[in-house]
Computed example of a mutant assay.
Amino acid sequence: MGNLRRVPVGIVGASGYGGLQLVRLLLEHPEVELVYLGEDSIVGKSLATAYPHLANVVKLPIEAIEPEIIASRCQVVFLSLSNGHACQIAPILLEQGCQVIDLSADYRFRNLATYTSWYGKERSDHDTAATAVYGLPELYRDRIADAQLVGCPGAYPTASLIALLPLFKQGLIVPETAIIDAKSGTSSGGREPKTHLLLAEADNSLAAYSVTRHRHTPEIEQICSELAGHEVTVQFTPHLVPMVRGTLATVYATLRDPGLVGDDIITIYTAFYRNSPWIKVCDSGIYPNTKWASGTNICYIGIEVDPRTRRVIVMSAIDNLIKGQAGQAIQCLNLMMGWDETLGLPKVGFYP
C-alpha cells in the first residue's frame, strides 16, 4: 500500500533532455508529487514553451531558481544543471533539510582538487562534497539509502563501470590493462546548439572526441582505484554515433588467470549482479544492442574471452537518458526513500 501523502519533489533545470526525462518519469511515479520546475531562462512560462507536446500534460509553471523557496515546498530536489551550478545551490537546499540528487559532475568526486583540475572551477563547498555519495546503486546501494546528497554518474561512467566492477572487485584483471571504447548518441551532448551535433555534421559519420582528456576519465578511475585498492589509470575513448539515444561501452582487459573462459566470467557477473534488478547479463554468444535498452533503466551486459590474447571483452549497453541520467537518479530516489528499486521506472524498451 502506498503512502497516503506522496513525497513532494522538484526539478531544477527542467528544460534539458535530462530534466525532460525526469518530468516524464516522475509524473508517472506512484509515490511522488512533482510540485516545482525551475529554469531561469524561461521563468513564468510553461514547459510547453520548450516542448510543445507537453502542453496538456504538465500544468506547473517554470519558476525562478530560489533555493529557500524550493526547500519550503520540496522534500527531494533533482538538480539537472550544467557542471558548476549545482554546487552553488545544493548546500542551501541541504541546510534547509532537503534531500538532493545531482545529475551533474559537481558531487561525483571525493577529491575536489580532481574536479577543479578537470572542470576548471574552484570550489568552496568541501564540507558538503564530503557528504556526497556516488549514485551508482549497483555498487553503493546501502550508502545511497542513507544519503542526503547523491551525485549521479552520467552515461559513459555508468556503462563503463557496470562493465568493470566485477573485474576489479574480484581481482580478475591486470588493472593497468583496462581500455574502454565507448560510443553514445547525440542526446548525450544536451540540447544546447553545438556545431558537431547538427544533423549535417553528425549524420553518416562516426568520430572520436576528447581523446585522452575526457572529463569522465577521472571519475571512472576514482571508482576503479577504490575497488583495486591502489591508484589505477584507464584508457577511455568516447565516440559520437549518428543516433539519438543509447550508449555502448566495450571494455578490454588482460585476465590474470589465462585459464578462465567466457562462461566462467558470465557466471561471476551473474552472481555479482544477482541483487541488481536493472542489470541483465546475456547468455554466451549474445552481445547487447543499444536498442534493447532504449526507453528503459536496464543495462545489458555481454561477455567474451579471447584465449589468444588472454583478454576479456565486456560490452555494456544502456539508454543514456534513462539509466545514464534520469532513470538512475530515480533509482537512487527509490533507495533513499526505502522503496522498491524498480518503482516508477520503465522495464520494457521501445524496440524496434
Rank of each mutant, 00 (worst) to 15 (best):
M1W: 05
M1G: 13
N3W: 07
L4S: 07
R6N: 05
R6M: 12
R6S: 08
A14T: 10
Q21Y: 09
Q21P: 01
L22F: 08
V23L: 14
L26S: 04
H29W: 02
E33S: 13
L34Y: 04
L37A: 04
V43S: 07
N56G: 15
K59T: 13
K59I: 03
E63V: 06
A64C: 06
A71Q: 03
A71V: 06
C74F: 01
V76L: 04
V77E: 04
F78I: 11
L81M: 10
N83D: 15
N83G: 09
I89P: 03
P91N: 00
E95M: 00
S104C: 13
A105W: 11
A105V: 15
Y107N: 02
N111G: 08
L112H: 11
T116N: 03
W118G: 03
Y119C: 06
E122W: 05
A132K: 01
R143V: 05
L149K: 01
G151P: 02
G154Y: 08
G154H: 08
L164S: 15
L165R: 00
K169E: 12
K169D: 13
G171A: 07
L172G: 06
T177H: 01
I179R: 07
A182M: 03
E192H: 12
K194S: 11
T195L: 12
L197G: 11
L199H: 15
T212Y: 11
T212I: 10
P218Y: 10
E231M: 01
T250I: 13
V251T: 14
T254K: 15
P258F: 06
L260T: 06
L260D: 05
L260S: 05
D263G: 08
T267K: 15
T267H: 14
Y273I: 13
W278M: 11
V281E: 00
D283K: 15
D283T: 12
S284M: 14
S284F: 09
G285M: 13
Y287V: 15
N289D: 15
N289S: 13
K291C: 04
K291Q: 13
T309F: 09
R311N: 14
V312M: 05
S316Y: 01
I318T: 05
L321W: 01
I322W: 00
I322L: 04
G324V: 01
I330M: 03
Q331M: 04
G338C: 03
G338Y: 05
D340A: 09
D340P: 05
L345E: 07
L345C: 04
P346I: 10
K347H: 12
G349Q: 10
F350G: 06
